[in-house]
Design a protein around this nucleic acid. Structure first.
Lengths: 251, 251
DNA sequence: TTGGCGATAATGTCTATACATAATCGCAGA
DNA sequence: TCTGCGATTATGTATAGACATTATCGCCAA
């Protein structure tokens, strides 16, 4: 047990990096059978538990597929996925050192219509807190946020003034969620939105819709409209998750 | 060891679901200290390795933060992230039962300009295979794909006819990647793009740019323009990864 | 009061072993 | 040749114990 720490800090890390490298480089293409646990055990001179830990995490990350008795094979890449980080405006501004303000344009409690009922899975007529928020950085409008909050799930929202924190930030800190759905689309700005965002009518805007649930109970729906020429979503991604997914949403 | 399999198939699964539920429900808010491993050990009547496995995976998924001696705490949700699946056109069409065609509009080998050099991190003048592909489903143009392929990394691409598979599909199956960068933006269609996609000039389009690298070596850049009213990106996401992230890119 | 230093406590890693589970292989019998 | 069943084998889960690593706590001395 001397050479176990040569070059890499931990044995299972070294094994994982080895196997990942072989998969990523194409040396082991999709469908290739990976050595059995007992073979890797011999190759690296370690116990099966160590090898097993590595293989389990690789399987959890979708790099390999495992079947009892048949062994492990390199997984086929099926479809690309983009992981996009959506920054909190206040945080983003603080980091960039720019001034940030927000303004609640509308606040009301309304019964949802049929379309919203279908999107959220709630019965028509359910009462929701409706908020329109304009996010402004350096006196330039950055985004228009139209939000519905389910008062049945988050009753405290009804008494919240949203003076210090915008609704999104407040919710993120306060209400945990278990499921989220995102839709990204491009639309032409209508005259109302164009006026708010100070762009020309018809300008392309990026719209991000997010709906979140907590254990099946609908929490909130946000529809954030960004001026197309001022904002885009960026994501950096490694297929193995090994360093986590970094990235930002920037100007 | 009789009650170990009550209700749940595996012990570590039961422990993990228990802890996740407590975090998700808000019973253990961000910052809350989770019981120490030896406490959980006693609570569930199992060995430390089993508890450790659960806690390690929770930490890997970002739900908790662990520090030696200090213990584990529920992680603060920092910024939302959207995981969007980008479907392969052929696959999507096959599943939806619609007819799919693609047409290579342009194919040339060019030296990249300064802007492309900056994006890719390669020196100006590097030779790239440039392809423009139109994706058509049921005789309706669905997307325009402008792609650069690094011939230094993927020399086989130079002799590839792309008769059977569009460049994206061919590359996905053939060249592994280790890092990817995605940018999503909204733009107004210029006259050339509008004509190709059969939309009005100025119509909002969703543009997805993806650049991929293989161990630091640039592989390819794709710029896919979708007509805004015909396409959007959808993603469904659970913070725990427990069921994996499902989702599709649809009409 | 403050600074340092050692004891302590929690996580991180690894081993050896055991049994469970599932799928394949191959042989025996029809 | 085909079928069924048992042996085999690889993975899945769990245990108990060991040692490494690293913060923190608290005591003692300056």
């Amino acid at each position: 047990m001397n050479e176990k720490t040569f070059g890499m800090k931990h044995l299972h890390q070294r094994i994982r990096d080895d196997i990942e490298a072989r998969i990523m480089s194409g040396e082991w293409p999709p469908g290739h059978r990976i050595p059995f646990e007992h073979e890797l055990m011999a190759e690296y001179g370690c116990s099966r538990m160590t090898v097993n830990k590595v293989m389990s995490t690789l399987a959890a990350n979708g790099l390999i597929t495992r079947r009892r008795r048949a062994g492990s094979v390199v997984a086929k890449p099926s479809n690309q996925q983009a992981v996009l980080q959506i920054q909190d405006f206040a945080l983003e501004a603080a980091r960039a050192g720019t001034e940030y303000r927000f303004k609640i344009l509308k606040r009301s409690i309304e019964a949802i219509d049929a379309a919203a009922a279908q999107r959220t899975g709630l019965p028509t007529g359910t009462e929701m807190l409706c908020l329109s928020t304009l996010h402004v950085m350096n006196d330039v409008p950055q985004a228009l946020e139209q939000r519905l909050i389910n008062l049945a799930t988050v009753p405290e929202a009804g008494e919240q003034s949203f003076k210090d924190d915008p609704p999104g930030t407040w919710l993120l800190r306060r209400v945990p969620w278990t499921d989220a759905e995102h839709i990204v689309r491009a639309v032409n700005a209508d005259s109302a939105i164009a006026k708010r965002l100070q762009v020309q009518t018809g300008a392309a805007c990026l719209v991000l819709e997010r709906r979140t649930w907590q254990a099946g109970a609908f929490v909130t729906e946000a529809r954030i409209t960004y001026p197309g020429e001022r904002h885009h979503l960026i994501g950096r991604f490694s297929p193995s998750f090994k360093g986590g997914a970094g990235g930002q949403a920037v100007s």
